[in-house]
Design a protein around this nucleic acid. Structure first.
Lengths: 346, 346
DNA sequence: CTGTTAGCGCGTTCAA
DNA sequence: TTGAACGCGCTAACAG
């Protein structure tokens, strides 16, 4: 009987078709594609010719259901791809994964833990070989090893209390401390804080660094100057406007992340261009996270710099070390990547 | 005989284990997971309990090898994830894909067509339901329908000559024309061009718009003012320095993309801070692609604005329309997204 | 409502 | 060096 004409819109030839065309058995095709061990060169040529002619692609999904066969996929869950910082992080992960011949399945959580949970479940269902997650919260049940069925997990940027997983994080406390300190030594005494809520790992740690620096200089924290919870540029800008409207506004700002920095600078810029609202205040800013064109800002800018792409690479490296390296890496490791305080514009 | 203890590092329970624990057949488990049609509620509860207890995840790969079963994956190949523009594009794609319950497999081509070819082959091997590609060149063989085995393809941002695929692009010509024109009406006559080589779709079209505007004003193109081929901030900056060193430097710059804009502004900024090199030249800039903090630049800035995230959404929508919508969408469509000239700082 | 059979594409195992 | 048989996890199709 003739095989039915390819009816499905996306019909794909299989080893069978290739075998028939090459006049061999499917097994010989499989062997050829696996490297050609124990197949006569002449036969290999016939097979490869047939592969080419039919435009055959090996079905990776069928392949990966066999025991011991890897899927070639790594699941990556990120909080916000729209943030250039995480774009670069993803780039670094992809780069290293590609070196290992792996592909990444990417999901954006939007800081929503429910979505994060869904994504991880889906990833596991797809037999990913490993998981890289920028956790959206301290909600940790779905990150526990037994929920993950033994799939290696590396957390990035943020760690989670009570989760015994590898993590690559930044020297948040040190960076925030040194960044804030750089303002203090310049003479600033009213330094505002813009950042995440303390329930977020980095929010907690960076605020700690800020507090530590102020304490060292014997300065009490003024709650009025502390704004937390802004997740995006819009709300950060509003918070900054608030600060500038205070009776006794800050002379400097420590911004704990990229989004808050941009929002703050937008607010400052708006004041510059609107004389009525401009009270002559041009707060200096220290930004945890570098940002493009910082050197062109109209106010003094210092950044607590670090390389998002390298963070991504390092995270992926740690994952692959777990997967393929010496099995005795020991228990979960937390790697801290360094941060560098850099005066961009004095 | 007892089942062997889970030995593989990432062993996963299967329908069989769940079935045994629930005291039913694998088929009943499958049915329950598929929605529970024709399964007694009481039995469903037992099954779900077993699923929960074992932490069972359905193997999507095994699932998708069955004919007619979709993989739930969309392959996305992007030129440069590190560019915030494409980060937002990817975000838009992910967003719409998620609405359709699809996950994206992401690859970065780095403008390398060989890598693009590999990625697409891999995607097809993974049985992706569709492909979204930002093509890196006019090299098109691997994008032809017969290479793709019927997998629907939507090109984004750039189209490719001779490829009959859907594409969502920008109004490049119009945007570049109106952007350049805005400089001309302000009185500028020496307007430099920074952008891609003309072998790139957008490079060609945006240069066309630039030329058209100059011609309308009876201005001849000065080859000295045209710099093409810069792919990143670094080289764009060098090109801009070159322009500023000319005996008769430009009074304004039309930058055809985000990376060139940032590079150009960095060069301008460097001159501002280095009096020795500063010849008092502050060229105005028109940037195809918006960029953050544009309003704080020390020179007049106008952007040819468009929404990368929306471009991503629209691209994904078109793909899903092909996949699930009315089958009579007709032949390949090219959608042009509008661009808006916006004076950010006069 | 539930179970049995069969087969998706591939590759390990064993036989020729 | 080659092929046949078998089974990976899952689910249509067909009993019962």
């Amino acid at each position: 009987m003739e095989a039915a004409a390819p009816s499905s819109p996306t019909w794909q030839p299989t080893v069978k078709e290739v075998a028939k065309l090459a006049g061999v058995s499917p097994m010989t095709v499989s062997r050829t594609l696996a490297g050609g061990k124990n197949v006569r060169p002449e036969v290999q040529d016939r097979v490869l010719e047939a592969v080419h002619q039919l435009g055959y692609y090996r079905n990776e999904n069928a392949r990966s259901i066999r025991p011991g066969q890897a899927s070639g996929l790594v699941g990556v869950a990120i909080t916000n791809l729209g943030n250039p910082y995480y774009g670069n992080f993803a780039l670094g992960v992809e780069e290293v994964a590609a070196q290992y011949g792996r592909r990444i399945v990417l999901g954006n959580t939007g800081e929503d833990t429910g979505r994060e949970r869904q994504l991880i479940a889906d990833f596991i269902g797809r037999q990913v070989e490993g998981l890289i997650v920028v956790p959206s919260s301290e909600d940790a049940a779905h990150l526990q090893p037994d929920s993950l069925r033994g799939t290696p997990l590396v957390l990035a940027s943020r760690s989670v209390r009570g989760v015994a997983a590898d993590a690559v994080v930044l020297d948040d406390v040190g960076g925030a401390y040194r960044g804030t300190r750089s303002l203090l030594v310049t003479g600033h005494r009213r330094i505002a804080y813009l950042g995440n809520v303390t329930s977020v790992f980095t929010g907690r740690r960076r605020f700690d660094g800020y507090v530590r620096a102020l304490e060292e200089f014997g300065i009490e924290i003024d709650p009025e100057l502390v704004r937390r919870g802004q997740q995006d540029v819009e709300t950060a800008s509003i918070a900054m406007h608030d600060l500038l409207d205070l009776a006794d506004p800050p002379t400097a700002v420590f911004s704990a992340n990229n989004r808050n920095t941009v929002g703050a600078l937008k607010a400052i810029g708006a004041r510059l261009n609107s004389p009525s609202k401009n009270r002559g205040i041009l707060p200096a800013i220290v930004s945890f996270d570098d940002f493009e064109l910082a050197e062109l800002m109209p106010v003094p800018v210092t950044v607590v710099d670090h390389d998002a792409r390298e963070l991504g690479r390092e995270t992926a490296r740690l994952l692959f070390a777990r997967l393929f390296g010496d099995k005795d890496l020991g228990p979960a490791r937390e790697i801290e990547m360094p941060t560098h305080v850099r005066v961009v514009r004095a």
